[in-house]
Design a protein around this nucleic acid. Structure first.
Lengths: 239, 239
DNA sequence: CGCTCTCTTGAACTAGGTCAAATCCGGTGG
DNA sequence: CCACCGGATTTGACCTAGTTCAAGAGAGCG
């Protein structure tokens, strides 16, 4: 159940078997959610965290004019709202982009962890800082990169993040999102995203079709996006 | 020395006198830095954190074409690189925008805090999550808001954040940045920022002149930007 | 088989960028 | 007190990346 989370953490630090057990046993419940189900609603007091076990989710905010901006995509192994533990409620909502399986961890257990297990606490803190690092990279993308670099950058990011949990390789990965979903990550319109996908495929860089991302030339993709994976901190260290 | 940090934290949770003392005594050194000094360099292993005591700093990334994107502005009371504790090195650099005074806190002391002071640990965790919430709001701004709404939103954000540490009121605040600095926060050119400032002043909403931000109509400003301060979590709760 | 959601494509439009040339203005040296 | 310097601001003319609107074409599914 927590395999992917463990893969994610163990790519960054050692996690003992005993620690793994504590994490495992902090789960109070397993649930499934349907596509478009709002798993966490902005502004509502929370008493538990949600670990994404299977599927894809996103954090997003809606604007008055009906537009939506996604601020992070979540893949299996991610806690989608671990930050609700220190924050107590969220500034954004979380939505299932496909049918998902989730594990629930009550805040109570996390609280106890901060008292009894400093190393686990630091690992969870680390996990939330990884989200923040991803946010920062998106700020850079949205602020300064062209639409095409922005898109390729996101696809490269997902390759690394999914790779860590064994869901991507050098050739690509499955990504069951719509083009509109991607456009909402990238601060652009679905129409424009579609055109860009066309040119990327024509240039034999990446393609996104039938819910699958295929890299035809990873090197060139990374060059176009100026992508370097350092902001994802895939490096084993004492945290 | 840590007055502003305490104001910032105490606006969100209780901090006992004893805890304040522990924070205080975790400082190993006080320094000043000059304008444009790079206080933390991306990718370098770090062993200490930097608390901004006086002045303004920013987190930023440079791109290959020489452009720069600022991902967060820092005001007195902010730890500019507390996330270096879990991350061990940063994905971005930190720069002094004006002459600043900083306090240094060795990672060692923070580590000890995670072992002996769970509540303080949670407060520091909270502080880093506040940065992440700000990043998310910037993602929304950069992705979906017009240049004018984006600018006004940032000015509103700073009013709240500076207000918490007693450096802003309803009329405005001092902001010793250049228009170019602001433009680099907002993912736009200095030229465009300048034009926008003109229309905002003409419309008697906000002005930014002589290093001072003046709100002529806070209500209208917030409406233009769709600004609500909830993402800044200025609310006293048990964290 | 028909429905609905997603993807594509074209044509016209606009927010914001680019480039370049003033102008302003605080600080310095004389 | 004044002239000068260099960065910061301001303005104009033109340009383009990405948007908007609208209409078809697929394509999965009950």
């Amino acid at each position: 159940m927590i395999d992917q989370m463990l893969m994610k953490l163990r790519a960054r630090d050692d996690v003992s078997e005993q620690e793994a057990l504590i994490l495992q046993s902090s789960i109070s419940e397993i649930r499934t959610v349907v596509t478009d189900e709002v798993v966490v609603r902005a502004g509502v007091d929370l008493t538990k965290c949600t670990l994404l076990v299977q599927g894809f989710m996103c954090r997003y905010k809606d604007l008055a004019n009906g537009e939506r901006q996604i601020s992070e995509l979540h893949v299996p192994g991610d806690f989608v709202d671990l930050h609700s533990f220190p924050l107590k409620k969220l500034d954004h909502s979380v939505l299932a982009l496909v049918p998902c399986k989730i594990a629930i961890v009550p805040h109570e257990r996390v609280l106890q962890m901060t008292r009894d297990h400093p190393h686990l606490t630091r690992l969870l803190w680390f996990a939330t800082m990884l989200d923040a690092a991803i946010h920062r990279e998106w700020v850079v993308s949205l602020g300064r990169r062209t639409a095409i670099a922005r898109l390729v950058h996101l696809l490269c990011e997902l390759q690394v993040r999914l790779g860590v949990v064994g869901m991507a390789d050098a050739t690509g990965y499955d990504l069951p999102l719509t083009q509109q979903d991607l456009a909402e990550c990238l601060g652009m319109t679905g129409v424009h995203l579609n055109r860009i996908l066309g040119t990327l495929k024509a240039d034999a860089v990446v393609s996104f079709q039938g819910r699958r991302v295929r890299f035809h030339d990873v090197e060139r993709a990374r060059a176009i996006a100026e992508f370097t994976p350092d902001y994802l901190f895939v490096e084993k260290r004492q945290r």
